[in-house]
Simulated scan of single mutants.
Amino acid sequence: MLPLWAPLWLDLQYSSPSLLLIVGLFFTVTTILSRLFVNRVAMERPSITVFDPKPSIAQDMNILRNPFTLILDDQQPREGQLENGVTIKITGDKPFRLTSYWGVNISKFHQSLKKDWSEMRQLIREGSFLAENCLQSSKPEEIEPPIGESITRHIVSENPITSEMLGTSPRACYPLIIILSINDDDSLDDQTTTIKDQLNKPSTSKGNGNNRKLKDEIVCLTSILHIRDDICPMDSNIITQLTKLRYGNVYNLQSLFTPGATVDETSKSVTVCVICQDATISRALLPCRHACICCECYGLIDKCPLCRSYIRSFFFIQQANQPEQSTESTAQSSDSSVDPTKPKPRKRFGFLSLW
């Protein structure tokens, strides 16, 4: 018994080649369309990853003045061993205490650094801060810094410390921690306690600005140092520096990165946007902290042009210039129905899509 498609096959044998070509094209096009349709229906989500638009409102930032600086002496060889110690240079604009701690337990240290400032200050005075969580600690040294001059100190352990005492890599303790803390008077305790209570209430008085400045005062600079030894032969250096606020959190002291400055016609050093090379830099990107673009170019990119990391937020390092402000005001006035605080829609490219 012949199959149902046999007559059609026999008919095609005696037909012209043009008919065979038409039938072949028909089946080919049908197969392609069916595959495209099936694949599109079975796709549960688009093949393009759409990122949320980055914020168009600057992150609220407060400018804090750090009263301390601590750096390693450039004249001292960085390959010094544990027994040789390190030489540091310090500057300060108010009286402070210098304390050093060797072989500090990492987890215990970060827990102790979160203590209330009045309690932490008292422990530093008594010499009992981190006493149970380190191998050795120094007595607090009262320093009255000269204005505009640096102080040199050589930090060395009283008793010899070996690399075996610090443990193998990765270590559970920091080799050396140096703490610079302000030497404020006990008479401030009652005053600052009252201010702390006032900060928890709604601000209705003009004096709240001064209270907040006192609240955000940096009272402590903690420098964590690595000291070269046989187990960790990396050169001695400052691993990180942490700042503690009087009634706030502990923050990592980070640098703000800017591109190289250019010189204009008036021989003044200026920095311009790395993208347009015209407008003045006005925004610092987060979390990379690169200050490299202007307000107009910020709306055109999703990644930092210097390190290619995604932009999560930003803050102003200076107000935008007048042309940028006038351009933004014109754009907002052209469509009064658009909320200026809402992020603008961004163009995205993909397969068979453009929006």
Rank of each mutant, 00 (worst) to 15 (best):
G92N: 00
G92S: 13
D93Y: 12
D93R: 13
K94C: 12
K94S: 15
K94L: 15
P95A: 05
P95C: 01
F96Y: 14
F96K: 02
R97L: 06
R97Q: 00
L98I: 11
L98E: 01
L98N: 09
T99F: 08
T99V: 14
T99A: 11
S100D: 06
S100H: 04
S100F: 01
S100A: 15
S100Y: 03
S100W: 04
Y101E: 08
Y101M: 11
Y101D: 10
W102A: 01
G103L: 12
G103V: 04
G103H: 11
V104H: 03
V104K: 02
N105G: 01
I106W: 01
I106P: 05
S107H: 04
S107P: 00
S107A: 07
K108E: 14
K108I: 09
K108G: 03
F109P: 05
H110E: 12
Q111C: 05
S112Q: 06
S112H: 06
L113V: 01
L113K: 13
L113P: 01
K114R: 15
K114A: 12
K115L: 14
K115Y: 10
D116A: 06
D116Y: 13
D116W: 12
W117I: 11
W117P: 03
W117T: 14
W117Y: 15
S118R: 05
S118D: 06
S118I: 03
S118A: 02
E119D: 01
R121V: 02
R121S: 05
Q122M: 00
Q122I: 08
Q122R: 09
Q122S: 07
L123H: 13
L123F: 14
I124Q: 02
R125M: 04
R125E: 05
E126A: 13
E126S: 11
E126P: 05
E126D: 14
G127D: 02
G127H: 00
S128Q: 02
S128T: 10
S128Y: 10
S128R: 13
F129M: 01
F129V: 10
L130Y: 04
L130K: 11
L130A: 04
